[in-house]
Design a protein around this nucleic acid. Sequence first.
DNA 1: AACGTGTCAACTGTCGACAGTTGGCAGTTT
DNA 2: AAACTGCCAACTGTCGACAGTTGACACGTT
Lengths: 217, 217
Amino acid sequence: MTPPTPLHLSLAGQAVDVLREQVLTGEIPPGSRVNEVEVAQKLGISRGPLREAIRHLASEGLLTLVPHRGAFVPDASPEDVRALFELRTALECAAAELAASRRTDVDLVRLQEVCAESRRNYKAGQPFPYRLDLAFHRTLLDAARSPYISEQVQLVQQRVVLLRSALADDPPHQHASMDDHDELVRAIADGDAAKASEVMRRHLSRVCAQMLTSLTH
Amino acid sequence: MTPPTPLHLSLAGQAVDVLREQVLTGEIPPGSRVNEVEVAQKLGISRGPLREAIRHLASEGLLTLVPHRGAFVPDASPEDVRALFELRTALECAAAELAASRRTDVDLVRLQEVCAESRRNYKAGQPFPYRLDLAFHRTLLDAARSPYISEQVQLVQQRVVLLRSALADDPPHQHASMDDHDELVRAIADGDAAKASEVMRRHLSRVCAQMLTSLTH
DNA sequence: AACGTGTCAACTGTCGACAGTTGGCAGTTT
DNA sequence: AAACTGCCAACTGTCGACAGTTGACACGTT
């Protein structure tokens, strides 16, 4: 049975997890407002912890606060997407460089395994799931061994997820992404930091362009 | 003529400003704990808004939260400094590249003015104030015109300020920094993104090394 | 009909109080 | 003396209620 009070995670922490999920999945659609009393009742907690959770998500960029008006799920303009990808590119190119110069054999195996799984899924007729794309970028981050960069990339990727509309189902794009990933792994395997950075930049440039086109349709 | 935002900032917002100042100036020393009731009384507010302020500063990296124990001002290990500068380097090198490719004549004038003021101060026997260093990096950020990158750099610089111990008063270092800044401005003026990035990387590498030595003494 | 004004419900901002947890201290045991 | 045990004060986590602000609607005016 559940103890009178949750022992492991604070109510605010739980609320953060639940709300983040609802925002990222679109269950709370972009542009909509988060009503404090309503959501607090729905989660079975009071407004105090919920407010802290809302502030936390706002600091992650998943909500925007308007004084005396509340919290809103941001909907992105093309300009936002471009600016956000400039940040993502800066971070992930650096991560690719660091990964190329620091990677161990274990890192390489992991990266190759993720790429191989993507290929298997693709050849089996299944679409390249976004899950595997995230897994690849995360594995690369681990290989970079730069905790602050990793932390920031995760936050940026969350915001990208918030924006991605119909990115998932474009086969040519998926194929190109997998090729990029393979090339990236080769550069990292060679310890070629400059090339790793360049391939990452090209990859993200393509992804950004893809998002922009699928955003305007 | 009242702007859409009220003249009154929320108590939580005010608390954020006061606390940030106190943390950055060392008035609340690293390693110490922030007592909620005590600080709330001192600020003349209740614990609710103060808690939100504390959470906000924690999201900026100026405080670390320990469940059921409270908020602490973090004190940095050399490893932290290195990792933090990896993040700063990634962001500011990208900003330097963007600034080189996007800078206008107005941007150039502003950058040169900051450099000139630094020289004047220095030749007048005054030390190169940290204030002017911040101003230079901020002006460069404005020239990059990438809002998300700028935002993140500001946050990282705050954390660097939190760590800087006796960085200020080393004349050789100051001189080298001013030279770096001048060279950076030249690269930006030439629109040479690759060189701007490289100079920035070297500059931050030197600053990081300086901080590490002054940290262990 | 369009425009300005007064009123109001809904919601956020804030507060004081209660409940649960933590680390330390005194007392006891070996 | 060292280690274990039980208690306690201090603090954080949480809650319900009050106060101030906002946006909208209805009403009256031109």
